[in-house]
Amino acid sequence: MTLDTLGDATARGAVSLRHLTKSFTLNGQPLPVLRNLSLDIRGGESLAIVGPSGCGKTTLLRLLAGLESADGGQVLIDGAPVTGVGTERAVIYQEPRLLPWLTVLENVAFGLEVRGLPRGAARDRARRHVRLVGLSDFETAYPRQLSGGMAQRVGIARALAVQPEILLLDEPLGALDAMTKLTMQEELARIWHEEKVTMILVTHDLEEAIFLADRVLVLSADGTPPAVIPVDLPRPRDRNTGDFVRMRRMLMGRFGLH
């Protein structure tokens, strides 16, 4: 492992979780979701978050996005506390969440226009990102004319177009078929490498976590403290090497799987 693959402490997009606590109320009872979670994520690092359903992965990501506020503790980005959504972050969801009345190009330009870039400039920049995800031939197509994988790529292009320092992904490939998923994992690895962004990725797929992440954060639903597992594998990664398979076996073992 080289220092380069881990990002470095001085790069932009560093995230610190400080004693983060969050609970919801369910049927009048408090439901603790995150208990005193602390973690430092380096700028340019790729972190995967895994854990059983309902353990708070989405909640953590929404706190990072500024769409939800913590009961206690703080999220710091490059040292500054998060108080709401910010231009240095972009979110990619499990569903592409495209606006059905906009074309592919207009959807990709959406974030830029919302942030005040004039229409023409926004479209020009969007065009580059549409090309980056391989959809140049579909610029004028509407979302209903796209396949699931294509739609998800549009969502990714929209997030990349605003040039975030931090990409927050909530099971972005969860709804895709196995083949498309593998292609998209390669795509994400390439984008992460080229754009030098901090990538925080929630996933159910342990192999995906090992393929993409520098470290894996394992959350639990029963109050067991979270664990952070480094993935010491060279890049680009190969799912068939002995080390990769050993890593996967170890991680699956943590969940009692074989």
Binding site: A65, L67, A90, V91
Partner: peptide, 12 residues
């Protein structure tokens, strides 16, 4: 709601 949240996450 999810579309609204998407727009908000871009700062709308």
């Amino acid at each position: 709601r999810k579309l609204i949240e998407m727009a908000e996450s871009y700062g709308a």
